[in-house]
């Protein structure tokens, strides 16, 4: 279990994490979903003991990461966002070192390394120097190094970035296996689909704060039944706001500027014509229109006013 209470972390002037709290339960995958710079890595760093939190409390199991760093760290496997491996030596030697660094030794270390090589599909290349690996293979080994000591808590920082679809499926399966074996998994990502398909529970994070959290169903219910319509073209925001307020008051404007308009409305398929009509009457030149069904993405846009992708 990971329990984060009011975690706050700043680097000088920059506030990277601004008071977040959540609990990740054993046997479940907890997702931390957010765009670049949201504070995902900083949160992971504080939990894994790489950084000291500026304030707040972090419990791993019932161990405080600041006060019982050593025991708490022994419970955790960490897979950093940047691949962190010794390139000159082989995959097996990397596993031996990081396994050793987490307290494994002797025959257990050797057999576990074999197991992990098998799991990550690297057994054929086990004794090749890592510098000869492809990016995806390095990612898989990076993951493997984190699970060597069979940790009951696993922190994964965007582990699937930059790997091909097959490897990704395999990696996500590995993560699911860990969870079903009872491991507490904390998984950060900026891929919406990944979060939706993998996580049991999710927190949406941006600018260091959690905007919404809960199970997938709870979050979906927040989204409501409304569709999102995005229009691009040439707008006069004040005029648009007045025209829609007068004619179609049930439509909610999410975002509006000279070049784009984002609105939320029920049954977009049926009501789109009315919307376009009102806009055209008011001199708007339209270029493109897109409709989005309710999803986590629309929730995200609703909460942050921006799209998730960079």
């Amino acid at each position: 279990m990971i329990k984060v209470e009011d975690l706050y972390k700043s680097y000088g002037e920059t506030v990277a994490v601004d008071g977040i709290s959540f609990t990740a339960e054993p046997g479940r995958i907890f997702g931390l979903l957010g765009p670049n710079g949201a504070g995902k890595t900083t949160s992971i760093d504080c939990i894994s003991g790489v950084h000291k939190p500026t304030s707040g409390r972090i419990l791993v199991g019932d161990l405080d990461i600041v006060r019982n760093a050593r025991q708490a760290k022994a419970q955790m496997g960490v897979v950093p966002q940047e691949v962190a491996l010794y390139e000159e030596v082989s995959a097996r030697e990397n596993l031996h070192f990081w396994g050793g660094a987490c307290g494994l030794r002797g025959a257990d270390l050797k057999s576990r390394a074999g197991e992990v090589l098998e799991l990550t599909g690297l057994i054929d290349r086990a004794d090749d120097a890592v510098k000869k690996f492809s990016g995806g293979m390095k990612r898989r080994l990076n993951f493997g190094c984190g699970i060597m000591h069979r940790p009951p808590v696993l922190l994964l920082d965007e582990p699937s970035v930059g790997i091909d679809p097959q490897s990704r499926v395999r990696l996500l399966d590995l993560v699911r296996e860990q969870a079903s074996a009872g491991v507490t998994v904390l998984y950060t990502t900026h891929y919406m689909e990944e979060a939706e398909s993998l996580c049991d529970e999710l927190a949406i994070i941006d600018h260091g704060t959690i905007l919404a959290d809960g199970s997938l169903d709870e979050l979906r219910s927040l989204v409501g039944e409304k569709d999102m319509v995005k229009l691009t073209g040439t707008f006069d925001p004040a005029e648009v706001s007045r025209a829609l307020g007068d004619n179609l008051p049930e439509i909610e404007i999410m975002e509006s500027d000279e070049a784009a308009l984002l609105v939320s409305m029920s049954d977009a398929a049926g009501n789109l014509a009315a919307l376009l009509g009102v806009l055209q009457e008011n001199g708007v030149v339209l270029r493109e229109t897109s409709v989005r069904r309710p999803s986590l993405e629309t929730l995200f846009i609703k909460m942050t006013g921006k799209e998730l992708r960079e």
Partner: peptide, 18 residues
């Protein structure tokens, strides 16, 4: 540059032994 020092900070043993 390899990120291994950083990873070394997350293992149970204090980094000074590494």
């Amino acid at each position: 540059q390899a990120g291994t020092i950083r990873r070394g900070l997350s293992v149970p043993f204090p980094v000074r032994w590494m």
